[in-house]
């Protein structure tokens, strides 16, 4: 991480905008049904592993690749565009 990146990252946290973007992303993922889809994936993964002990780490390693692929392009695009606009807006 370069110095510039660190400063941008720190500024996002300091102003609370990082939380705001996180909140926006969360809303979009809920709206488009992504969260429900991932919930179903988790359920399947637990079922497949019947008897065996499923912990968080195995669940993450099994579900993450498919969950990532399920994020709609429209959501990615919107977030990217909004974060870009936000970072490029001069602050006083």
């Amino acid at each position: 991480m370069t110095v510039n990146n660190t400063i941008a990252h720190q500024r996002l946290i300091l102003t609370g905008d990082r939380e705001r973007f996180k909140d926006l992303l969360m809303r979009r993922l809920i709206e488009c049904g992504w969260r429900d889809q991932v919930r179903m994936l988790c359920r399947e993964a637990v079922k497949e592993n019947e008897g065996g002990n499923v912990n968080f780490d195995t669940l993450v390693s099994r579900v993450t690749p498919r969950a990532r692929a399920l994020v709609p392009d429209t959501v990615k695009k919107e977030l990217l565009q909004k974060i870009k606009t936000h970072l490029l807006t001069p602050k006083d």
Binding site: Q10, R11, I13, G16
Partner: peptide
Amino acid sequence: CTSYEARKYKAT
């Protein structure tokens, strides 16, 4: 981060 103070700690 329930306050600005907290965000300052978290950021740095």
